[in-house]
Design a protein around this nucleic acid. Structure first.
Lengths: 225, 225
DNA sequence: CCAAAAGTGTTCATCATACACCCATGC
DNA sequence: GCATGGGTGTATGATGAACACTTTTGG
């Protein structure tokens, strides 16, 4: 083998959701290249740490964020994707709950910001391509794995779940059929608590039951929307 | 950033199929570590080549094989996965047709060999984990994307397709229903040619029509078994 | 009592499944 | 003519889709 001089980095596409808006967390670059431009958070992997560790570390360093769901997305390695030198990046995608989302939405941090995925700024490197890949994955995955719950509070009214799905799938869903389908899966716990959204009838709160889900999955029952 | 000394490699899990047997192509290692042990083909990425190029190059160098289907599988990066030094590997998974499969099955090459996935030898590094990931992906993917055709000859009798699916899914399939389902998708061209398997009634040959498939996919019609 | 959101059942069409016999060929 | 694999249709149950009114609360 010739002398290899490839650098390895990780990047994280983090999604947040609130009231019909899917957002992505971006940072404003402080260094060359693409100084001042927006980018997906990420950075180089240390010699002794795992890739997951690197993502979580970089995310925390750059944004202060701790996420509740993380999975590997894809590895981007075109030779010219970084103008400096050859850098191969393992991209991850993460999800955060609204409580965390709101924290970051309210601070006036100039260098860290949520962007609605329908109004993205221009991005550095091939980060737009990475983001598109992540959005595609998110949209696809919520139809066959229950990851949508990771974008909601732990306790949520059913209407939140419905709204999330209409937003992500980009089409209306029949409320009755959707409720029937989800409740029949038997992966939600119905709580006694109720919550009111200011006006209208208060809604019961539900909670995703991972245990039940993995049990059913083992038995071959499949989540599907 | 500290001085990074991570090396990047690619590995390829290549599947072949013939008459109810799913096989994987393995090579016998000629160098340390794990000398003499079986491993998935792969090697280091050159500085100026793309990852896909690296996989294809390494595959060709090590096995002489050219594959007809290739996709990125997952990136494996645990710090201690290689005893020498930190090596992160982007794993791919590939499929070859029986014509190619047979070529390699017949040669007496000591260092390159197909192994039925039910009787694998002990593997080097974390290659067993990579292989399991690939098998899982293959099994999952054939149910929602028409990649199974890449494991058959371009022209094939319907029974071959059926056999492939029973093998991969590990359960019997009703011949009439399966045929109805696939033919209703309208992604196969029915040829005039027939083929005989020695005894029994000769079978019509079919051919996967990628154009039709992509057309239908664009219209939102989904392949599903 | 009005506005706003939550909650709920039935009907119909479609699709998946179960199931068994005849056909074409080689020997 | 028999052994071997190829080819075909129908009936039934299950599931998904369409559809609108009542309930509970706040103001």
């Amino acid at each position: 083998m010739r002398n290899q001089s490839i650098k390895l980095s990780v990047d994280a596409v983090v999604f947040g959701y609130e009231e019909g808006n899917i957002s992505v967390l971006l940072i404003k670059r402080k260094y060359k290249p693409f100084i001042g431009k927006w980018a997906i958070p990420g950075g180089f992997v240390w010699n002794e740490e795992s890739l997951e560790n690197a993502v979580e570390r970089e995310l925390y360093e750059e944004t202060g964020l701790k996420i509740n769901y993380l999975e590997q997305l894809y590895t981007f390695g075109k030779p010219d994707r970084d103008p400096r030198t050859r850098i191969v990046s393992v991209a991850y995608f993460g999800l955060v709950r609204p409580s965390i989302y709101k924290l970051y939405a309210s601070t006036d941090a100039e260098q860290v910001q949520w962007f609605n995925i329908d109004s993205l700024p221009e991005l550095s490197f091939d980060h737009y391509e990475i983001l598109l890949t992540a959005i595609e994955r998110l949209r696809g995955k919520i139809t066959y794995e229950p990851i949508g719950f990771e974008l909601l509070d732990k306790k949520f009214p059913f209407s939140d779940l419905e709204k999330l799905y209409t937003t992500l799938l980009g089409r209306e869903i029949d409320r009755r059929n959707f409720r029937k389908k989800i409740l029949n899966l038997n992966i939600l716990d119905e709580l006694e608590e109720k919550v009111s959204k200011g006006s209208g009838r208060p809604a019961k709160l539900f909670q995703f039951n991972k245990k039940k889900y993995f049990q059913l999955k083992k038995e071959g029952i499949i989540f599907e929307i």
